[in-house]
Nucleic acid binder design. Structure first.
Lengths: 124, 124
DNA sequence: CCTTCACTTAACCTAGCGGTTAAGTGAAGG
DNA sequence: CCTTCACTTAACCGCTAGGTTAAGTGAAGG
């Protein structure tokens, strides 16, 4: 899963299209494993393990009612993921491109550091 | 990487904290492999491969200038990732919770489907 | 009860990740 | 030239992911 931190777990969970499909489904309504398996063309054990991954990332909760186990979307962790990505919005949002260019210019401004062949970016 | 689609590649790339750190660094300024390696306490080959992953996800571009290879953040793919997550904002954004509850009620409304022990969620 | 249903767990597979060290490449420079 | 610098590629490692089939679990029900 790469890191063991929350954010890594969430991004890792989202990296699988099957799990994204499960999330999309659970956004509509809670569902049992059988219901989730039906449209997925993989075995129920496979789905069961995807659910475990989503649960470890705290993206779903599960409840038992008789022989059925329903999965319920818990989207709170998505907020952290969204927040992380949002920090870079200025890099793709065209309405902020001008500002970004300005800020980049600000960063590059100042004493105009010496740039040599050995130090092409003036970091020395 | 789970899927080979663009979105999976991006989320997969973001799932590693080292790669997120690299992105954070490149958001400040373009950087060479050596510069990126310095604060990371892993070997340069390891960083080199992280960069390849980021490049496959189209999150960075690379240019050559003499013996230096600079990496440059290309955040466009982050937009897709952000857009995907945004679809679920109503599940965590409290200002939308009331609306969400309303929509859920709408979905559940109607002929009030029969619910039996065999069909606890009235899907039959 | 014994079976069926709805799962979960186990065992196994192949493929890929992330790290290492060591060897290869290609431009710069004394 | 030959070396050094800044990487990249190769070979190898242990670990995890995602799939399978088969066996286990536990509540419902004739």
């Amino acid at each position: 899963m790469a890191g063991t931190d929350q954010l890594s777990a969430v991004f890792s969970a989202l990296a699988d299209p099957t799990r994204r499909a499960i999330i999309a489904e659970l956004a509509e309504r809670d569902a049992t494993v059988t219901e989730l398996t039906a449209p997925l063309s993989i075995s129920m054990p496979a789905v069961s393990r995807h659910l475990k991954v989503l649960q470890r990332a705290a993206l779903i909760s599960r409840s038992r009612s008789g022989k059925w186990r329903a999965s319920h979307l818990e989207a709170a962790p998505l907020r952290e993921a969204a927040d992380w990505i949002e920090r870079y919005r200025r890099f793709w949002d065209s309405s902020l491109t001008r500002l970004d260019a300005h800020l980049a210019a600000m960063r590059t401004a100042g004493p105009a550091p010496d740039r040599t062949v050995d130090d092409p970016r003036g970091l020395a």
